[in-house]
Protein backbone atom coordinates (compact mmCIF):
# COMPACT_ATOMS: atom_id res chain seq x y z
CA UNK A 1 0.00 0.00 0.00
CA UNK A 2 1.31 3.43 -0.92
CA UNK A 3 -0.16 6.91 -0.83
CA UNK A 4 -1.22 6.89 -4.52
CA UNK A 5 -3.17 3.70 -4.10
CA UNK A 6 -4.77 4.86 -0.90
CA UNK A 7 -5.92 8.17 -2.44
CA UNK A 8 -7.00 6.24 -5.55
CA UNK A 9 -9.11 3.86 -3.47
CA UNK A 10 -10.60 6.77 -1.52
CA UNK A 11 -11.44 8.50 -4.79
CA UNK A 12 -13.15 5.31 -6.01
CA UNK A 13 -15.04 5.04 -2.75
CA UNK A 14 -16.06 8.71 -2.94
CA UNK A 15 -17.35 8.23 -6.51
CA UNK A 16 -19.59 5.34 -5.49
CA UNK A 17 -20.92 7.21 -2.46
CA UNK A 18 -21.55 10.41 -4.50
CA UNK A 19 -23.57 8.36 -7.00
CA UNK A 20 -25.67 6.68 -4.31
CA UNK A 21 -26.30 10.03 -2.58
CA UNK A 22 -27.29 11.66 -5.88
CA UNK A 23 -29.81 8.93 -6.66
CA UNK A 24 -31.14 8.67 -3.10
CA UNK A 25 -31.54 12.42 -2.40
CA UNK A 26 -33.12 13.27 -5.76
CA UNK A 27 -35.13 10.01 -5.81
CA UNK A 28 -33.97 9.82 -9.42
CA UNK A 29 -31.32 8.16 -11.54
CA UNK A 30 -31.78 10.67 -14.35
CA UNK A 31 -28.60 11.13 -16.39
CA UNK A 32 -27.03 7.92 -15.10
CA UNK A 33 -26.26 5.07 -17.50
CA UNK A 34 -27.73 1.84 -16.13
CA UNK A 35 -25.56 -0.01 -18.64
CA UNK A 36 -22.32 1.38 -17.22
CA UNK A 37 -23.52 0.46 -13.74
CA UNK A 38 -24.33 -3.09 -14.90
CA UNK A 39 -20.82 -3.36 -16.34
CA UNK A 40 -19.22 -2.13 -13.10
CA UNK A 41 -21.25 -4.69 -11.16
CA UNK A 42 -20.00 -7.41 -13.51
CA UNK A 43 -16.44 -6.11 -13.03
CA UNK A 44 -16.62 -6.28 -9.23
CA UNK A 45 -18.36 -9.66 -9.28
CA UNK A 46 -15.76 -11.29 -11.52
CA UNK A 47 -12.76 -9.68 -9.80
CA UNK A 48 -13.76 -10.20 -6.19
CA UNK A 49 -14.62 -13.89 -6.37
CA UNK A 50 -11.30 -14.36 -4.60
CA UNK A 51 -13.00 -13.06 -1.44
CA UNK A 52 -13.80 -16.71 -0.80
CA UNK A 53 -10.39 -18.14 -1.62
CA UNK A 54 -7.71 -15.56 -0.88
CA UNK A 55 -7.44 -13.37 2.21
CA UNK A 56 -5.23 -10.28 1.76
CA UNK A 57 -6.12 -7.92 4.60
CA UNK A 58 -9.08 -6.57 6.56
CA UNK A 59 -8.85 -3.40 4.43
CA UNK A 60 -8.96 -5.42 1.20
CA UNK A 61 -11.88 -7.58 2.30
CA UNK A 62 -13.88 -4.62 3.65
CA UNK A 63 -13.45 -2.57 0.49
CA UNK A 64 -14.34 -5.49 -1.76
CA UNK A 65 -17.53 -6.20 0.18
CA UNK A 66 -18.45 -2.51 0.12
CA UNK A 67 -17.83 -2.19 -3.64
CA UNK A 68 -19.87 -5.32 -4.36
CA UNK A 69 -22.75 -4.35 -2.07
CA UNK A 70 -22.89 -0.75 -3.30
CA UNK A 71 -22.84 -1.76 -6.96
CA UNK A 72 -25.76 -4.16 -6.47
CA UNK A 73 -27.58 -1.46 -4.47
CA UNK A 74 -27.04 1.01 -7.36
CA UNK A 75 -28.44 -1.51 -9.85
CA UNK A 76 -31.46 -2.06 -7.60
CA UNK A 77 -32.12 1.70 -7.39
CA UNK A 78 -31.81 2.22 -11.16
CA UNK A 79 -33.70 -0.81 -12.44
CA UNK A 80 -36.26 -1.33 -9.67
CA UNK A 81 -36.88 1.37 -7.08
CA UNK A 82 -36.47 4.43 -9.31
CA UNK A 83 -36.84 2.77 -12.69
CA UNK A 84 -39.45 5.35 -13.79
CA UNK A 85 -36.67 7.99 -13.74
CA UNK A 86 -34.17 5.93 -15.75
CA UNK A 87 -33.49 7.57 -19.16
CA UNK A 88 -33.65 4.33 -21.10
CA UNK A 89 -34.01 6.17 -24.42
CA UNK A 90 -30.66 7.91 -24.01
CA UNK A 91 -28.80 4.85 -22.71
CA UNK A 92 -28.38 3.21 -26.08
CA UNK A 93 -24.71 2.21 -26.21
CA UNK A 94 -24.25 -1.37 -27.46
CA UNK A 95 -22.57 -2.59 -24.30
CA UNK A 96 -22.77 -6.25 -25.35
CA UNK A 97 -19.87 -5.49 -27.70
CA UNK A 98 -17.68 -4.41 -24.78
CA UNK A 99 -18.39 -7.70 -22.98
CA UNK A 100 -17.67 -9.85 -26.05
CA UNK A 101 -14.40 -8.07 -26.83
CA UNK A 102 -13.29 -8.23 -23.17
CA UNK A 103 -14.05 -11.97 -22.99
CA UNK A 104 -12.09 -12.69 -26.17
CA UNK A 105 -9.13 -10.56 -25.05
CA UNK A 106 -9.13 -12.19 -21.61
CA UNK A 107 -9.02 -15.64 -23.22
CA UNK A 108 -6.13 -14.61 -25.46
CA UNK A 109 -4.03 -12.36 -23.24
CA UNK A 110 -3.76 -13.43 -19.60
CA UNK A 111 -1.15 -14.38 -17.01
CA UNK A 112 -2.41 -17.94 -16.65
CA UNK A 113 -5.11 -19.98 -18.37
CA UNK A 114 -7.18 -20.72 -15.28
CA UNK A 115 -10.79 -19.82 -14.48
CA UNK A 116 -10.03 -17.33 -11.71
CA UNK A 117 -7.19 -15.68 -13.62
CA UNK A 118 -9.29 -15.30 -16.79
CA UNK A 119 -12.18 -13.83 -14.77
CA UNK A 120 -9.75 -11.38 -13.14
CA UNK A 121 -8.29 -10.42 -16.53
CA UNK A 122 -11.78 -10.06 -18.03
CA UNK A 123 -12.72 -7.72 -15.17
CA UNK A 124 -9.63 -5.58 -15.80
CA UNK A 125 -10.40 -5.26 -19.55
CA UNK A 126 -14.09 -4.65 -18.98
CA UNK A 127 -13.43 -2.01 -16.31
CA UNK A 128 -11.24 -0.10 -18.78
CA UNK A 129 -14.23 0.49 -21.08
CA UNK A 130 -17.20 0.22 -18.70
CA UNK A 131 -17.66 4.01 -18.55
CA UNK A 132 -18.29 4.28 -22.32
CA UNK A 133 -22.12 3.93 -22.08
CA UNK A 134 -22.13 6.77 -19.50
CA UNK A 135 -19.89 9.03 -21.62
CA UNK A 136 -21.98 8.17 -24.69
CA UNK A 137 -25.14 9.16 -22.82
CA UNK A 138 -23.66 12.55 -21.88
CA UNK A 139 -22.58 13.12 -25.47
CA UNK A 140 -26.09 12.27 -26.61
CA UNK A 141 -27.88 14.61 -24.20
CA UNK A 142 -25.12 17.24 -24.37
CA UNK A 143 -25.05 17.88 -20.64
CA UNK A 144 -24.63 16.41 -17.17
CA UNK A 145 -25.78 17.53 -13.73
CA UNK A 146 -22.91 18.85 -11.64
CA UNK A 147 -23.20 15.99 -9.12
CA UNK A 148 -22.93 13.50 -11.99
CA UNK A 149 -19.79 15.26 -13.18
CA UNK A 150 -18.31 15.13 -9.64
CA UNK A 151 -19.04 11.40 -9.68
CA UNK A 152 -17.27 10.99 -13.02
CA UNK A 153 -14.30 13.09 -11.94
CA UNK A 154 -13.77 10.97 -8.81
CA UNK A 155 -14.24 7.75 -10.78
CA UNK A 156 -11.81 8.81 -13.51
CA UNK A 157 -9.19 10.08 -11.05
CA UNK A 158 -9.11 6.72 -9.28
CA UNK A 159 -7.47 4.80 -12.14
CA UNK A 160 -5.18 7.73 -12.90
CA UNK A 161 -3.92 7.56 -9.31
CA UNK A 162 -3.46 3.81 -9.74
CA UNK A 163 -1.08 4.55 -12.62
CA UNK A 164 1.07 6.58 -10.21
CA UNK A 165 0.81 3.63 -7.80
CA UNK A 166 2.07 1.26 -10.52
CA UNK A 167 4.99 3.56 -11.33
CA UNK A 168 5.83 3.65 -7.62
CA UNK A 169 5.54 -0.14 -7.31
CA UNK A 170 7.74 -0.64 -10.36
CA UNK A 171 10.57 1.45 -8.93
CA UNK A 172 10.22 0.49 -5.26
CA UNK A 173 9.04 -3.13 -5.41
CA UNK A 174 10.07 -4.13 -8.92
CA UNK A 175 6.44 -5.03 -9.53
CA UNK A 176 5.01 -4.62 -13.04
CA UNK A 177 1.74 -6.06 -14.33
CA UNK A 178 1.32 -5.02 -17.97
CA UNK A 179 -2.29 -6.17 -18.17
CA UNK A 180 -3.32 -3.88 -15.32
CA UNK A 181 -1.08 -0.99 -16.40
CA UNK A 182 -2.09 -0.87 -20.08
CA UNK A 183 -5.78 -1.30 -19.24
CA UNK A 184 -5.47 1.44 -16.63
CA UNK A 185 -3.91 3.78 -19.16
CA UNK A 186 -6.75 3.10 -21.63
CA UNK A 187 -9.31 3.57 -18.86
CA UNK A 188 -7.85 6.91 -17.74
CA UNK A 189 -7.42 8.02 -21.35
CA UNK A 190 -11.15 7.65 -22.00
CA UNK A 191 -11.78 10.37 -19.40
CA UNK A 192 -9.43 12.95 -20.99
CA UNK A 193 -12.14 14.95 -22.79
CA UNK A 194 -14.30 14.84 -19.71
CA UNK A 195 -11.44 15.96 -17.42
CA UNK A 196 -10.85 18.94 -19.71
CA UNK A 197 -14.52 19.96 -19.58
CA UNK A 198 -14.66 19.39 -15.83
CA UNK A 199 -11.66 21.62 -15.13
CA UNK A 200 -12.62 24.37 -17.57
CA UNK A 201 -16.34 24.45 -16.74
CA UNK A 202 -17.52 22.64 -13.62
CA UNK A 203 -14.67 23.85 -11.40
CA UNK A 204 -15.54 27.41 -12.45
CA UNK A 205 -19.11 26.93 -11.32
CA UNK A 206 -20.61 26.38 -14.76
CA UNK A 207 -22.72 23.44 -15.85
CA UNK A 208 -21.19 20.64 -17.85
CA UNK A 209 -22.59 21.27 -21.30
CA UNK A 210 -20.88 20.01 -24.38
CA UNK A 211 -19.80 22.50 -27.03
CA UNK A 212 -22.28 22.35 -29.93
Amino acid sequence: MNVFRLIGDMSHLAAIIILLIKIWRSRSCSGISGKSQLLFTAVFTCRYLDLFTNFVSIYNTTMKIFFLASSYATIYLIFMKFKATYNRNHDTFRFELLIVVSVILALLINHEFSATEILWTFSIYLEAVAILPQLFMITKTGEAESITSHYLFALGSYRGLYILNWIYRYYVEGHLDWIAVLSGIVQTGLYCDFFYLYITRVMKGKNLTLPA
Partner: peptide
Protein backbone atom coordinates in the same frame (compact mmCIF):
# COMPACT_ATOMS: atom_id res chain seq x y z
CA UNK B 1 5.15 -11.30 -13.43
CA UNK B 2 3.76 -13.22 -10.51
CA UNK B 3 0.03 -13.28 -11.26
CA UNK B 4 -0.80 -12.98 -7.56
CA UNK B 5 1.08 -9.73 -6.98
CA UNK B 6 -1.72 -7.59 -8.40
CA UNK B 7 -4.44 -9.30 -6.43
CA UNK B 8 -3.97 -7.11 -3.37
CA UNK B 9 -5.20 -4.20 -5.49
CA UNK B 10 -8.87 -3.37 -5.81
Amino acid sequence: VNADDSKDEL
